[in-house]
Amino acid sequence: MSEIIVITSGKGGVGKTTTSAALGTGLAQKGHKTVIIDFDVGLRNLDLIMGCERRVVYDFVNVINGEANLNQALIKDKRTDNLFILPASQTRDKDALTQEGVQRVLEELKKDFEYIICDSPAGIEKGAFMAMYFADRAIIVTNPEVSSVRDSDRILGLLQSKTFRAESGLPPIEEHLLLTRYNPERVDLGEMLSVEDVEDILAIKLLGVIPESESVLKASNQGAPVILDTISSAGQAYDDAVRRLLGEEVEQRFIEKAKQGIFKRMFGGR
């Protein structure tokens, strides 16, 4: 049984590709054969975050057009077993993605992979539609601010109406909320929406909360998924999310403000 998971948000810059890389790596680490597909044709980023940009020869569009076969285009990750990347084309645009082509590639990948992660581009145009159309599950990446939440809500509406599952009357896509760049201190100050606020507006189940962390930017620039940074809070939060995705009960962390250390409490420092 293989499963297609779309990582989507509507809004750009909220952490879709970071999440795709982290969750894909996490699933592979736990022994599930996983492929991450970059649907952001023309703005290829996934290969950078995964640190495999210099190994891209053929891409997703080449496979759709029959110019290369899947094995030529799939890049095997060097750090993690069971993990493959299907990069996007940098020289084409989203119109190169055809529904038949995408379906054919996904069907072929399904024979081989347990999890197929579709990294959606921002927006609600063709690339985003193609990424979500055949999905079984959706992870909605949202930042705790109103515009991101509004866009996520819009995407949720489209997932319920403009996807293969919706159009053919199959059980609806399973939706998960992943709240990224969360900062409990700023929530307390009223500068950021709280987990409860976002859950209340979107009314879908929470997969996890990824705290705002310097390690995310560092990981991106180094081309290593942040989940590999097991010391960082973001890395741990992504690992929790992967376990929840696989059906484990894991208590939510990183929602509360970090407890002050004993010295700070004694000397009242900030």
């Binding site: 509004r150 809500d153 509406g157």
Partner: peptide, 27 residues
Amino acid sequence: TTPVRSGQQVYAKGGDLIIIAPVSAGA
């Protein structure tokens, strides 16, 4: 019975509309 999301439009022609879910901003 499902949430009416931002950007969605629901019209009950000739009758009542009963929604057993939230109606989002922008819907």
